[in-house]
Design a protein around this nucleic acid. Sequence first.
DNA 1: GATTAGGGTTTG
Length: 698
Amino acid sequence: MGDKNKSKKVTYSYTTLNELRPNTKADVFGVVKFIKPPYKSRGSDYCTMISITDSSMTGMDDKLKCLLFAKEESMLPSPDVGDIVRFHRLSVSMFRDSLQGQSSPGFAWLVFSGRQKQPVEPKTSSSPTYSFTDSDKDKIRELRSWASKNDEFKENLCSFNDVATGCYFDIYCQVVSTSVIEAGVGRLLRVWDATQCLYNVREVSADSQLEDTQTDEQVHKRARGFIYDVSVFDDHFKSSSHIKPGDYVKFINLHASEWKDNNRSHRPAIEFCLHRGNSFGRCVRVVSADLPDLISLKQRQEIVALDNESFSVTGINSQTAVGNSSGNSQAVAGNRSGSNDRDDVETDVDNHVQYFSHATAQGDKNSVSEKRDNVESNWGKNNMVEDVIVISFQSQEASSLELGDKIDGTKATKPVTDKIRYVESQASSSKAGDTRGADKVRQAGDTRGADKVRQVGKGIATENQRYIFKRAAVSNARAEMTVNSNEKKADQRRCMVQTSTVVLDHPHVNCSQISAVLSHAVPYKFRVRAKMLDFHPKPDSAKTFLQLYCHVCHYLCPYPEKDTIQNGSTVPRLQIGSTFQNVPHFNCPQCFEGKDSLPALDSPPHLKYIFMLRFILSDETGMLMANIWKEDAVQLFQDMQPEDLLRKESNIEIVRDYLNRICPPNTALCDKPWIEGCLRSFHNACGTVYQMFDTFIV
DNA sequence: GATTAGGGTTTG
């Protein structure tokens, strides 16, 4: 009640938390550091414990634990960590040598978002009316500003597609069904957040004796192919008893625990567990369906649901499919329909996209004039956008863009940062196969690549984490590890996700989703994690796979096949200037054109053999086409030179193997490996172009 | 009307 009639008369004087004295009552503001969710006490009341802090607190007294009671659960504050609370008439006393706050007669509370961009008005309050002055607003802004500098208050929100083995993370999702695993001990919540996990996820069996499964059939239908099992235990069994299918929930400190799947040991598997207890604020709770934090999740859900509905209409398969393909679900994976199975997309792309019509010489000149050096951010000094590939599309492009637009419906406005905290796993997590990538580099007879990978590993590995060192070398080399457990708290670590490519030299750049790349101002550089829908050209032979390029005038053409020279007028006849190691080197026809002699040049420049590829990348937010060529492609192929393909016929097999590794043929998109890479965007005459760089196949 | 509970680095 408290403040209702006093608001005009009473001015509150707020005490900073370091000035509190025992056996007094005080009015305070604080940032929430810990919350034990409200529960029914053995007495008459509900109880919650909230630890708060402010900028005045230091050292041992870094928080004030507040023990709050109320007759109704709804009368207790239930803030998130990082939120700001205002308590009036908090009773302060000593308990076990520390100050403790307690609710007392007249106790009143307000909860504010801790986010700087949110309105300063309270989110919730103990009473419908309360005092609230400009000075209060200043106090909120001040605390937000202070808290924003402290990682401890940051949430660890993830989607299922961010998650990797061993992570603890927070997630919003919608409940599809509930059932009991073991009465009083374990409850199964089947949930979806309209993203898909990289790993096989354990499917949990409910207690079939109980037959208590409740499902929201409508949600179930919408979520098909994206549903994951979450087990909650002990205290969370009780606190989740009121959760119904269809509810939106927030899990705090959910564990993506490694799961030994004996049936499919060749693939990493995880299970989602909410362990007992409430350290780290661990809990699951229902959130309002109107919560602004749910907006992007709901947008994704609409897209997935639309896809699932369109499949239902055509009657392809209305069979339930769980989002993972673990255990005995191989058959399910093969049958399942819905957005997670992008075979349909793949076919569309194949049919509609005219990937690569090579550049005209004029086009290339234009592209060079597009050089820019104003790429911002933390990408180091080499910001110059290099020569670019100009690729013209046939009119079919519209079809593919339509497809992309559909998938890209979320229109994320900013890069989503991966904030998963990585927690040191047991040494047993190490797998012999983890060294494979580095070994392959060495087998390829090129130690440079391996050295690069080792360099990436060096800065992040510690004595206790040799397996992580190895893992880093073959996965994405982006994890920031800690030296020991004492440092765990402060570190914002990132999960390591096995990918078929790694990024070199940019360990601190966060990954952006494709929708964010597409909507970002141009030019810019990004790090992305995506799957490869397709690529072009196919490595059928060295001559069809390579292009010829002039560094002087930027002339570009395919390898001059004999029949093309005879029949086609578009590709000028090329003269062989020299032959070295059985590889012909052609004169540049453009540099030579109209000239009887070439001042300053003894002979026309030779065309250089280059790789020039286009990748079609996709993640759950969209699709984009990325080009890679010249040195960037050489780097991708572990320093394989284009001429190597001509010198030795079998080298094309190695390239084919690389490409199959990042884009396995005849494989559904959901089963393809993730790739991680760097993209730069820029404008040219054709519009916005994306170019891949600093990426390396492992 | 007193009482309740009073966190603590996770792992099914």
